[in-house]
Simulated assay, not measured.
Amino acid sequence: MSAVIRNNLFLKVSEIEPEQLRSYIINEVGEKAKDKLYNYLKDLTESYPEFEKWFFDAVIPEIEMKNGNRQIIIVLSEVEAKPSLVLTGIAILKKTDTEKKICTIRIHDNFRNQGIGSELFEKCFEYLETRKPIITISSDRKEMFETHIKNYNFSETQILKDYYKKDSTEYVYNGYLTDER
Rank of each mutant, 00 (worst) to 15 (best):
N67A: 12
V59P: 00
S118W: 09
K32I: 05
I63A: 05
P49T: 00
K53L: 13
T104G: 01
D109Q: 12
P18W: 12
S84I: 09
E78V: 00
A33Y: 15
K100E: 09
K34V: 01
V86P: 03
D35A: 05
A91E: 01
T98A: 03
L93S: 00
D109I: 01
K66T: 00
A58C: 10
D97E: 14
V79A: 01
E52Y: 11
I92M: 08
T45D: 02
G115F: 12
P18V: 13
I105N: 01
I105A: 00
Y24L: 15
V29L: 13
E50C: 10
A58P: 00
K32N: 10
I102G: 00
G89I: 05
I25H: 06
Y48F: 13
E28T: 13
A33S: 08
D35C: 07
E19Q: 13
D109S: 09
V86N: 04
D97S: 14
E52S: 15
Y40N: 01
N113S: 14
T88R: 03
E64P: 02
V29E: 09
K66C: 02
I63Y: 01
T96F: 04
E80L: 05
I105F: 09
P18H: 14
V79E: 02
I25L: 15
E99F: 11
I74L: 07
E31M: 13
K101R: 14
R112V: 06
P49W: 06
F51N: 03
K34P: 02
G89L: 03
E46T: 12
I25Q: 04
N69L: 09
E50R: 11
I25E: 03
I92G: 03
E64G: 02
D57Q: 12
I102C: 08
L44P: 07
G115C: 10
I90K: 11
C103S: 05
I72M: 04
T45R: 08
T98S: 01
K94D: 06
H108S: 15
I90L: 15
K94H: 01
T45L: 02
Q20S: 09
F51M: 04
E52Q: 15
T45W: 00
S47F: 07
Y40F: 15
E17I: 15
S84R: 07
I105K: 06
E28K: 13
Q114H: 09
F55A: 07
S47Q: 04
Q71H: 05
T88G: 08
L87Y: 02
I107V: 15
F56N: 07
E62M: 04
E62K: 07
K101L: 08
L87S: 02
I73W: 05
E46H: 12
N39E: 11
V79H: 00
G115T: 10
N69E: 10
P61I: 02
L44T: 06
A81I: 07
K66E: 00
I74F: 02
G30P: 02
